[in-house]
Every structure is written in C-alpha cells, then in structure tokens.
C-alpha cells in the first residue's frame, strides 16, 4: 500500500538540550512550590515546639513536639477561644447579610435593562477602591457616639463595605452564564419572577454563590484594619488576637504560630474544597 511499516520506532527522541530544559523547568516549578510551602511548614513546626527549641536553629527539624502551645493560646490571658467565636460570628454574619443582597442585586444587573445601570454597576465595583481608612474614620466616630465601638455588629457593618461589591460582581458573572432560556421556559410554564429566581436562577448559579460566600468569609476572617480600630476587648477577632502575642517580655513566637494555625487551617480547608470554582471566578473578572 505505502511505505514499509517500521514497528516500534520511538516517535520522538528528545535531544540533550531539550532534556536539560525540561529538568530546569521542573526545578523552577519545585522552587515555586517550595517558596509557597516552606514558610507555612515552618510556622506549623514552630507551633509544636517548646520555647527553648524556637529560640535556636539547632532544633530546626528535630525536636520533641508538644501540644502545649495549642492549649496555652486558649487560656488566660490569650483566650483565643473567644476570638474564634468573634471571628466566626463576624464573618458568618457578614456573609449571611451580604450574599442574599448581592444575589438579588447581581440578578437585577444581569437580567434587567434600566437607565443608569452601567453607571450604578461601575459605582458598586469602584467602591472596592475606597481606602479602608476613609471608610473606618467616619464609622469609628459614629460608633463611638452610638456606643457601638468594640461590638461585633459594628464589625459586620464595616465588613459589608468590602464584601458586598465583590459578591455582587462575582455572582453576576455566574448568573450571566445561566442561559436566559431556562428562565423563559419556567415563566412560560407559569412561574412568577420570585419563583424563577429562587427555583431556577439560584440553584443554577449556586456554585458561584457558594464561591462568593467562601470568598467573602475569607476576606472578613482575615480582615485586620477595621478590627484593629473598632474592637478593643469584647469583639477582638483572631488576626488582632495574633498581635497580642507581642508582649513586654518579647514576641511569643510559638504561641503566634499556634494561633496562626488556628486562623489559617479553616481557610485552607474551605478554599481547597472549592478551589476549582475559586480559581475560575477569581480570574474571570480580569480576563473576560
């Protein structure tokens, strides 16, 4: 029929330069992974060291691990337990308020045409760019007068200012991707607008809504400046709890590391659970 068959001849033989380049790339990727993981790894190790092992590099990797630090941070005067409670309440309160409002607004932006829509949407997006100091200054003064300083509700309110715009934008992106025919066929079948939203749009955009919720939770959970200014004692959150380990006796690194694990681990877990949608929606805005 045609040329004689040459069975078993390798289809591609990489040359030495190509192989070297491959190794270099692998090495570079390894360096990237190490740059991400080593600092985290070192913090985790430190959390399980007794102070004597923290203040020397001789016990860098070989030491007798202890759970003492993870216990101590929950005791007086650190009381990370109450700070965890505050962080959970503030973050979930913010998300629970923000997500329904953001979903409604995102739906309106995605599906309705009305005058000034573009301008309103741009204002919502641009409001992320207002520096935190500008937002917190008036509210610090107002909360002070209203006696709301050092309350969790005050923190929820100011955190809404950062979470809402992100959530509106993210959820709008997901609603845009829901085919409008789905809604139209539901309406033809006799569903009201409210039922269309709750029974068609929300379930279809649920991965996006969950991603926005996770993202909003993360932002609030890690939020530092608002908490630093507004909370004093009762409403202290975890990030502020961390700087409490900077004492007159010096920095208590092993306790900071233990606190660091507590603040970081939940975020790692949830973000890895939703990492696919997370990466997709975080990058979608910039590249569309």
């Amino acid at each position: 029929m045609s040329a004689a068959s040459v069975p078993g001849v390798p289809g591609y033989r990489a040359g030495p330069a190509e192989r070297a380049a491959g190794w270099l790339r692998a090495l570079a990727v390894f360096v990237i992974i190490a740059a991400i993981l080593l600092p985290i790894f070192w913090i985790v190790l430190t959390a399980f060291k007794v102070p004597r092992d923290v203040y020397t590099l001789d016990a860098a990797l070989w030491f007798a691990p202890t759970l003492e630090n993870l216990r101590t941070v929950f005791e007086h005067p650190w009381n990370l337990g109450s700070k965890i409670v505050n962080s959970v309440l503030v973050a979930s309160g913010t998300v629970l308020l923000a997500i329904p409002m953001a979903t409604m607004a995102a739906y309106a932006f995605a599906r309705f045409e009305f005058r000034g829509k573009q301008a309103l949407f741009l204002v919502v997006i641009a409001s992320q760019f207002i520096p935190a100091a500008v937002i917190v200054l008036p509210y610090f003064l107002m909360f002070k007068q209203a006696g709301m300083l050092d309350t969790r509700s005050a923190l929820v309110l100011v955190n809404l200012s950062i979470v809402l715009p992100y959530a509106v934008w993210m959820i709008k992106g997901f609603i845009d991707a829901v085919p409008v025919e789905m809604e139209e066929s539901a309406m033809v079948d006799g569903a009201s607008r409210a039922r269309v939203i709750t029974e068609i749009v929300v379930p279809a955009a649920l991965p996006g809504i969950i991603t926005a919720a996770v993202f909003g939770f993360t932002l609030t959970w890690n939020e530092f400046l608002f908490a630093l200014i507004i909370s004093k004692q009762d409403a202290l959150t975890l990030p502020i709890g961390l700087i409490g380990f900077r004492t007159d006796r010096g920095d208590l690194w092993e306790l900071m590391a233990a606190g660091g694990i507590l603040i970081t681990a939940p975020m790692f877990v949830v973000s890895l659970l939703v990492h696919r949608q997370f990466i997709g929606s975080l990058t979608a805005g910039a590249v569309r």
Binding site: V6, P7, G8, V9, P10, G11, Y12, R13, A14, G15
Partner: peptide, 17 residues
C-alpha cells in the same frame, strides 16, 4: 504533536525531532 511510535519523513529524511 509527537507520534508515540513510528517515523515521519520528508523526502526520506526522518523529521520527528
């Protein structure tokens, strides 16, 4: 794409690489 096995030749000269 690179073939897994076999040879591609232009005018009898292997060009796989």
């Amino acid at each position: 794409e690179h073939p897994t096995l076999g040879e591609i030749a232009f005018d009898g000269v292997r060009i796989n690489e």
